[in-house]
Design a protein around this nucleic acid. Structure first.
Lengths: 134, 134
DNA sequence: CTGAAACTGTTATGTTATAACAAATAATAA
DNA sequence: TTATTATTTGTTATAACATAACAGTTTCAG
């Protein structure tokens, strides 16, 4: 289950349906919201959704927002490395945006490195106000 | 509910008990684990714990680890500003450490600022290996 | 003292996530 | 192809995390 971003493997039926739901939404969805949207297409149980989400996240095609218990399609721009991903979450309008930045990523590794810690995976979620709401 | 770190208000009975449980533990605890530990002291319901935790987090005396659904006593060193807090979480031994760094904090604000986003609160949780386990 | 604000206790319920098992499907190699 | 192995699927049940609503109590400033 190792994939570079934007080189998706062939998705299974459930994985495709869940991915489509994430792409159609323009914001994060909870697993149960996804389930409700896909009941008409035959999904019946939470596990069917969670299993698909696990794969999609593993493939780098979706992200989990830890602070919201929700999932969102990966939209980080092509050309950026797959390294670090941060999210901005607007407390006014709920908009979630993805930021990817190599310099920041190395800062982050350096910060942790200073404490003798070797970073493999990071969760960075920023709350505040987006440009439109400010 | 505004407090500088390390200038704790007078805690109520429940708040003190929950804080004591967090301090005694040398790692994160789930709300239900805390509840179990405090049943012998009279606590009976999850809400009693969650309410205390909300206050303690608000006072800056405890932190919530979003990626673990767990809580940990604040231990960031005196003298550091209260700005940003990051956590390192060792995937081998489970050790959780707190890092606070002003320079990184400003990097983080700058990164978001570049996208027109104004950061009020941040969640930074880093997974990998601690010094001892590496 | 008294009224407002904060805290407490309690029951019930809502939300998020996984365990365990059996069956179907797809990918691989002989 | 056919046997073998991996993965995916479907399903039921349950675990783990969190809050709603309401009533009663304590605290404390005015």
């Amino acid at each position: 289950m190792e994939h570079f971003p934007h080189t998706p493997p062939n998705l299974t039926k459930n994985q495709s349906m869940v991915m489509a739901a994430l792409l159609k939404a323009n914001g994060p969805l909870s697993a149960y919201t996804i389930l409700d949207q896909l009941r008409s297409k035959g999904l019946r149980a939470p596990l069917q959704v969670y299993r698909a989400l696990d794969k999609l996240v593993g493939y780098g095609m979706a992200h989990r927002l830890e602070s919201m218990n929700a999932f969102i399609a990966c939209r980080h721009p092509d050309g950026e490395s797959g390294s670090m991903v941060a999210f901005t979450i607007c407390e006014s309008c709920g908009e979630v945006a993805e930021i990817s930045n190599d310099r920041f990523d190395s800062q982050l590794h350096k910060l942790a490195g200073g404490a003798g810690f070797n970073v493999k995976k990071s969760t960075v979620e920023l709350f505040g106000q987006c440009e439109a709401c400010a």
